[in-house]
């Protein structure tokens, strides 16, 4: 057994695995200080089993949480399946925060929320802004504190897909993209390491200030940043939430407070440099 712990915040995970492969791969993605031996005095929020059943090389790995099976994978796709497995645990069980499917970055103590369905260019945009000096809170999950309204970071490597891997490398030759895996259910996946600034503040919340719904439009020549009625922004955020329905009146109240204090926009763009200029100008 090579059990180990991944001490991310606000959630940690205990990984049970018979193979050293996963831990070795994760050392490329997470700071070594966050990967540790299992400590009997620590409570881990989630537990993931990553192991081969019916022991033997060449058998697929099963990723599961207790008896709840998540997915089977071969060794080559262990990292993405692990990352998705961890997201799945959190999306299924945590209702401590209102969780929205969105990227979150911070500048000057204020948080920018980028909610968007897959294909809208959210991850690429998130990666670009981080490379431009914004602090990454999350590329996937916006965690809103139900009482304070603050956004808590959940710093993890930024998941880039397909063409965006090449684009990021082209725009930022020093960007650290690791563990590129081909042929996953989402195509080619690679992980951009969070900036040092992001890791240093990985337990520091931020005040929400802007909600921007991005949409990549290749034919667009001029960027369009249009104010969005707050009621519309509210509905879109609720729709993009993992647990708005579960939280019922608490979710409504928390989301109302967030939308009330944020400026809300729709962003249609083709040229990434225009986006950087426009979003930096917001601050």
């Amino acid at each position: 057994m090579t059990d180990f712990a991944l001490n991310t915040a606000p959630f940690s995970v205990l990984v049970t695995s018979r193979s050293p492969a996963l831990r070795a791969a994760l050392t490329e993605l997470y700071p070594l200080s966050l990967l540790s031996k299992v400590d009997a005095n620590t409570i881990y929020d989630f537990s993931l089993d990553v192991r081969r059943r019916w022991a033997g090389w060449g058998r697929p790995f099963h990723v599961s949480s207790g008896q709840q099976h998540f997915r089977m994978t071969d060794k080559a796709q262990l990292v993405p399946v692990f990352e998705w497995g961890l997201n799945w645990c959190i999306a299924s069980y945590q209702h401590q925060y209102l969780a929205i499917h969105a990227a979150v970055l911070e500048h000057g103590g204020k948080a920018l929320i980028l909610p968007a369905p897959p294909g809208s260019g959210k991850s690429t945009l998130c990666a670009v802004l981080m490379q431009q000096g914004w602090r990454l809170l999350s590329d996937e999950m916006c965690l809103i504190d139900l009482s304070s309204g603050l956004i808590w970071p959940y710093v993890r490597p930024v998941s880039l897909k397909n063409q965006s891997i090449a684009l990021i490398k082209q725009w930022y030759p020093d960007a650290r993209v690791r563990q590129i895996t081909r042929g996953t259910t989402k195509g080619t996946v690679g992980y951009l390491l969070p900036s040092d600034l992001s890791w240093q503040a990985y337990q520091q919340p931020a005040q929400p200030a802007w909600v921007v719904f991005p949409q990549y439009q290749p034919e667009q020549t001029e960027l369009m940043l249009t104010p969005l009625p707050k009621a519309d922004a509210f509905m879109h955020l609720a729709y993009n939430s993992f647990n708005y329905n579960v939280l019922a009146d608490e979710g409504f109240t928390a989301l109302s407070a967030l939308v009330q204090r944020c400026a809300t926009y729709r962003l249609e763009y083709a040229d990434i440099n225009q986006v950087i200029r426009e979003l930096n100008a917001l601050c």
């Binding site: 409504f252 939308v259 009330q260």
Partner: peptide, 13 residues
Amino acid sequence: LQTRFNDGSSVAF
């Protein structure tokens, strides 16, 4: 439950 936003728009639960 109702919220009236500062841009005049409004949502209800």
